[in-house]
Each structure stands twice: as structure tokens, then as C-alpha cells.
Design a protein around this nucleic acid. Structure first.
Lengths: 207, 207, 207, 207
DNA sequence: TATGAATGAGAATTCATTCAT
DNA sequence: CATGAATGAATTCTCATTCAT
């Protein structure tokens, strides 16, 4: 009996926490990381102020948790989807294409990532990038500048995808441009673009 | 006599407004567009709260004015510096190099532009971009994606330049990458990079 | 359980709102409609500033609510007390006498009504007035002038009653003068003045 | 020469003071005695804040001065106009008619007197009232109630005259009602109403 | 005397946080 | 755990007053 009560309690608790995080995603996506008030989150989640404080200490803590959740979930999805793919250019390029596909299927997530994620998140595919540079698949006078260009471009693209109705090929085009900027061999680029998109990254996972 | 008084008054007024704008540049550069409190600005400008409200209705109005000032001033400087330069690639590329040079000489301005400017400002060199596309000097499957990549990359670069000590060539490298992403002919890129940097854009003009 | 909590919450909320309104009555009566500061109300009600804003948006909104409350309550009391009384002169005259009796028993209310009520409230007995004019019980070259004289006289009387210790017959005398000004038959006036005062209007009802 | 300068200075000073008072009349008439800010007066008078303080210490002092000016001027006009008139009822009735005529010709003044004057002003014709009561021309169970009724009615009438377009006879009708309320002999009332209106009270005098 | 920029005390308003139920 | 009324510190904003020119 006590067992049952505990289980029910834990489940309810997890459901409430999930509601808050989903509401936070929406609110931060709409207002950015600084503007939101507790009441915005509370209203969006359909809970009371007091309940909020049962789960998070402050808006900042909520922001951190929301970032952690989305980042963790994205990493997992990407790694899973790219599980069998080999080669830095292919992995990196397909990763970007998947990222934009996910953005397209969830504009709120896209806006959130574009507005809120700082380096932690937007540097995810660093391993493939490093490997590509090491192997000479990517070439650049300044790796830092290269990363900055790509990171900024991706962020800008996410904001656009999350905000307006973009053409279906927009994400692929941006991926292509990024690879070009990295100095990738055109034939390799073509291969990336023609490769079938692995499954994954398109569904929203509950925290 | 009355003339003299009016002139003195106007001069003082303009000096105060300039002090506020300069303080605002600093504060917005440090804290972003949403976080600053009136008191931050007031303290940075060395004026009283009341004086602030003699010049601006709210922090939002101040933000708008600061954007307008920096944008106007940047446009003027760029146009002046590029006065005699012909050809979209040369103009666009030199424009970027000048922009980054200015950023390097004024990190606060760089941080401000990187964090705060929205499209209004960061689309400045649109005319040259359009002309380059028209003439086939720039090539891209998706002009929108191309612009987004460049805009995002520039923003990211400004944040870096405004935040840390970057290598002297960083700006040039990023410029080169942008031109590559635009599909510019490598010889043309080389010409841009070897061209002497016109004077201008390096001094801060008072509002 | 949830039911109980809701009821307790609502009751507390209503009690607080009532405290604020009662404090407002006092404060507006003392200072008039424009002068009061939020802090005056807050201090008189014994609540915090924040609590005030949980109930009203501004002093103006509080003023409106206080007017609405007093007006509604007065209308109800009068109508109840005059329920069985017939004839415009009798109803109007007894209404005035009751009004002044209430004023006497609650000087704060009297000052409030005298200083703050605008037409909405002080035109209450319009129906009887119109009916009296229609039937020829009241006569006047200018109904507008007549109403203005009575309204102004009543307001002035309320201020006096609410401010100083008046003779017990003061209200009746003013009623008599009003009826005279309306051109009422002296015998009818005598009947009004000799009629027993119905119960009611003398107690303060909580909002 | 010094003489000349002093005279010119004094004249200018008097003109400025007059401008302020006239502006104050307007502003107090529109906003009542409590609401006006220094800036409202300053803007209406077309002067600077500093100049205001050369003439008055505060808004309260300005209010007092404006009341004093209008009261003094009204007393003088009335006394002058009624110079040769004998008998309390005739004097009192004609005084009221003149008062309303003045109100009609200067709605701002009317609104000001209606909203702002306290007893000091609206008790002006006390002497005639007292004399009328002494001689039995006026009759009332309660002189206080009588005065209150008349004072309130006059105030209400001034507000109406100052605010909307009233019929030309409105003032006379209200005068008649007042005299009726005072218990005046109908023939005497008729005489008052038929009496020619003395000259005066219709022009605005500069302070 | 006239001006209006500058000031800062004080009033209005917001909002994160607590806590009794 | 959930609730939302109450709180008051922090912030925004107003406006009477001063004073150098």
C-alpha cells in the first residue's frame, strides 16, 4: 500500500515537472532567457506559484534545467541516429540536416535553441569537426573563425525556422553552405546531401 | 543675449544626451538588451534618475535610440570609407574587414552590436549583396540561407571580438570564410584580402 | 478537501477586499477623491502595498469600486425601506429624510457621498421626481434647475452633517426646503414630515 | 532713466503675473483644485518653470491668489452694480441673476467658482440674507439649512453653466427657485424677475 | 527677470518568495 | 504535494524645486 502510494506520488511529481519544463520551453522560446517572470511560466504550465517552488528554486534554475533537458535529449537523439554513420563530413553534415529537420517539426524547440542555448549546446558536434580538421576533410585558415561562422549561421537559421514558414529545403541549403565554408570537397558535399536522412530527432521526448 | 543662453542650453543638453547614450552603449553591451535597470544607466552616465527621464521615456526607448545612433553612425562611416570602391565583392569584403577592424578597436561597440542589433543593422550591406547575386559574383542555392549564415557568423564574431583578445587576423579570416560561403571566385577573394584597408570606421563618433 | 480550501481562501479574500473598501471610504471622505496616496489607504486598511495591488489596479479603480459599492448599497437600502410607500412626494420626501438619517448615523459615509459621488449616485430618486413632475405634484419652470438646486443642496447638507455636529432636525428641515423648492403643496409637505420614518438605511453593510 | 526702467519693469512684472493668474483660472477650472501640476500652469501661461517661482511659492499659493483675485473682483462688481438698489430680496435676487449672467458670459470663471470656491466666496451676499431674515422677508425653519440649500444649488448651477450650453433663462429660473426656497412672497419674486438687470459683472477684469 | 537643465525625494508599481491551509 | 493570499524589497516613474546662465 505504502509502495503504491509512493509510486503514484512519484508519477504525479514527474508529470508536474514535465509540465513545467514544457511550459518553460515555450515561454523561453517566446520571450528569451531574461524576460520571463515566474507568473508567465506558472500560467503556461497551469499550476500555482507555490507548486513551481516545489520543483525549482528560481527562474534561473528553471532555465538551466530546461537547457540541460533539451541538450541531453538532443545529444541522445543525434548520437542514436548517427550510430552507424562513418566519416566526419558525413556525420557532421547529416547531423546538421537532422538538426534542422527537428527544428522544422518543432518550431518552439527551434526558437528556444536559437535564442537560449549558449556554447554548451551549439558546440555539440565538436568531435566530428575536430576529427574532420585533423584528417584534412575540413580546411580553414582559422578554425575558430570557422566554428564561429557555423555556430552563428545555425543559430540564425534556427530562429528563422522557429519564427516563419521556411521552404522545405532551407535546412539542407544551409547545411550545404556550412560544408562549403568548411572547405569540404564538393563531391563529398554532394554525397552528404544525397544520403538518406536517418530516422530520429523528430519526436519530442518528455523529460 | 537670449541667443547665447539658448546656445549654451542646447550644448549642455546635447552633451548630457551624448553621455547617456555612451553609457547606454556600455551597459547594453555588458548586460544585453533586457537586463539593464535605469539605475545601471544612470550610474554609468553619472547623472540623476530625473535627468534620465528628461531625455528618454524608458529603457526601451533608450535602447531604440542607442541602436539608431550606432546604426546611423556605422552606415555613414562605411559609406564614406567605401566611397570610391567599385564592384560588389570588393565593396562587400572590404566592408566586412572594416567592420571587424572597428570592432577590434572598440570592443564595447562590438559587444553591443553583436548582442543587441537586430536585422536593421546587420543587414547594412544588402545593396552590394544583391548586386553581387544579380551579377553572378556571388552564387547560392538559397540567398536567404546565405544571408542567414553570414549574418549569424558576423554576430558571433563580434561577440568574440568584443569579449576576448582575438588574433589580429581573426576578422580577415572570417571575412574570407564569408566570401567563400558566398561562392566568390578565389582570385577575387584574394584581391579583396590583399587590398589596402581604406581609412575610417575606427574612431568613435559622438552622437 | 479542495472545496474547503477554496472556501477558506475566498472568505479571506473577501474579508481583505472589504477591509480595503472600508478604509477607502474613510480616506476618500477625509481627503477627497484626488489627494489620497496608495500608502494612505494601505495604512488605513492595515495591509501591505502588494496586497492592495492584488485587489485594485490603482487609486482610481479603488475610487470607482468604492463609489459602486456605496451606491449599490444605498439604492438597495432605500428601495427596501420605501417598499410599501406610495406617492411620489411621500416617497421622495421620506427618501431624503432617510438619506439624512443615515448620514447622521455615519458621518464618514456622509462626507464620502458629499465629496465624492457624482451624478450617478446623487440622482438616485429620479424616478419619483419624474413621476411627481408628470402628475403635477411637483411644479417647476425648469426641471433641470430644480434638480440642480436639490442635488447641490443635498451635497452641501451631507458635507455639513459629515463634518460637524448638526441639530437633529437639520435633515428634516432641509428635506422640507427641498419639497418647498419643488413647489409641493404645503399639506403634502406636512404629511411627509409627520409620517413615521421607515426602518433601514441606518446600518453600515459590509461590501 | 532709472525711473523709466523701474516703470517698465513693474509693468512687465504685472503683465506676467496676470498671465499666470489667467492661466491658473483655466487650469483650476478644468482640473479642480488638487490635480494641477506646476507644469500645467506653466504650459498654459506660456512661461518657464523658473518664472513661475518668481511669482508664487507653490501651487497652493497660486490657488489662494486666484481665489482672492476672483473673489475680490466679484465682490467689487456686485457691489458696484447693486449700488443704488434697495431691499434685501431685490438685492439678493438681482445679485444671483447677475452672478449667473457673469457665469454665462465666462464659462471658465463659472467652472472655477463652482469647483474651487469654498465658503469664503459662495457666502458673499450674506449681509442681504441676514437682513432679509431679520425683516421677515425671508422665512425658514432653519437658516443654516436654507443657506446650505442655496449655496449648493448655486454651485451646482455654476458647474452646469460652465460645462454645457444652458438655456438663456436657466439662471433666472434657478434664482426664482432659490427665492421660493427662502419663502419669499411671490409678488416680490415677480418684481425681482421683472426688474431690469443692472450693468456690470459681465466683463473679465485683469488682476 | 526669465530660462530650462538638473536634481532627488517620494509616490506608484512589479514581482519573487513565503507560508498557512 | 498543491494552492494562492500576503508580503515588502526592488524598481520605475513623477514632479516640485533649485540654480547657473
Amino acid at each position: 500500500m505504502s509502495d503504491h502510494r509512493m509510486r503514484v506520488g512519484r508519477e504525479r511529481s514527474e508529470r508536474t515537472q514535465a509540465r513545467i519544463l514544457r511550459a518553460a520551453l515555450q515561454v523561453f522560446a517566446d520571450q528569451g532567457p531574461d524576460a520571463p517572470k515566474i507568473d508567465d511560466v506558472v500560467a503556461a504550465a497551469g499550476i500555482s506559484r507555490g507548486t513551481f517552488y516545489n520543483y525549482f528554486d528560481s527562474v534561473d534554475a528553471l532555465l538551466a534545467a530546461t537547457c540541460a533537458w533539451t541538450t541531453r535529449e538532443s545529444i541522445e537523439s543525434i548520437e542514436e541516429a548517427l550510430a552507424g554513420v562513418e566519416g566526419p563530413a558525413l556525420r557532421y553534415g547529416l547531423g546538421l540536416r537532422l538538426f534542422f529537420a527537428r527544428a522544422r517539426s518543432d518550431p518552439t524547440w527551434s526558437r528556444f535553441v536559437g535564442r537560449v542555448w549558449r556554447v554548451d549546446g551549439l558546440e555539440l558536434p565538436d568531435r566530428d569537426l575536430d576529427e574532420g580538421l585533423d584528417r584534412g576533410v575540413f580546411r580553414a585558415a582559422s578554425p575558430t573563425a570557422m566554428r564561429d561562422l557555423v555556430r552563428g549561421g545555425v543559430r540564425e537559421a534556427l530562429l528563422r525556422i522557429g519564427t516563419e514558414r521556411t521552404a522545405p529545403e532551407y535546412g539542407d541549403h544551409l547545411t550545404e553552405l556550412c560544408l562549403q565554408a568548411l572547405g569540404t570537397d564538393p563531391r563529398l558535399i554532394a554525397a552528404v546531401m544525397e544520403h538518406e536522412l536517418p530516422e530520429g530527432l523528430e519526436e519530442d521526448e518528455s523529460p
